[in-house]
Amino acid sequence: MENTLIQRVYVWQLPVRLYHWVNALALFLLACTGYLIGHPFAIQSGTEAYDNYWFGTVRFIHFVSAFFFFFNFLGRIYWGFVGNKYARWENFIPTKKAQFEEIKDVLKVDVLQSSVKPLESIGHNSLAGVSYFLSFLAFLFQCVTGFGMYSAMSTSMLPKMFAWIVPMMGGDFAVRQWHHVMMWFFVIFSMIHVYLVFYHDYVEGRGIISSMAGGWKFIEKDHHKK
């Protein structure tokens, strides 16, 4: 049956979806193993070191996830320049007046809920875009500080490129401390992010949750007339 009111819009291209889920998995692993590295459980005692390696494995998972996370992030930045209009970098850094207007609207409609008018954006709304940009800055910070700490035990080029951050921040201790603090940004971000996706799906009914799997959103045909 032809639906006369709704049209399908292909919003998230495959690289964007792939990025999203690799990123989600890597972040989950990084946060869990990172927390463990900061607070190892006392799961073993009374044994000798040569029988065990669980903490080394936790750290290994952390480092491997970090490399996936980093290159995935680089890939997304590249896609921000060659992807479709919903993927482009302009979505994340507001420069136009309309974007700032939309930020105000989203604050009114979705955050404070003082107004109930429907919103315009098909891809990221401008406020979401800005919040993702902040998360990109957090990604960058985690990559720089993480590789900075890693550089001391590595001879490979990539971590060595970030060795400068350690003296700049006043030593490994400070770098580790801030790397750890920033983990909480991701925990809080994920909580809010997941909630808001459910919220938008519930309120707008455009299939935003499934859009990150298949790439399609369902938009009212008279959307642009409003």
């Binding site: 073993q44 044994t47 070191a49 065990n52 903490f55």
Partner: peptide, 8 residues
């Protein structure tokens, strides 16, 4: 080695 083994 105790660190890598998770023995603290």
């Amino acid at each position: 080695p105790n660190y890598d083994a998770g023995l603290f």
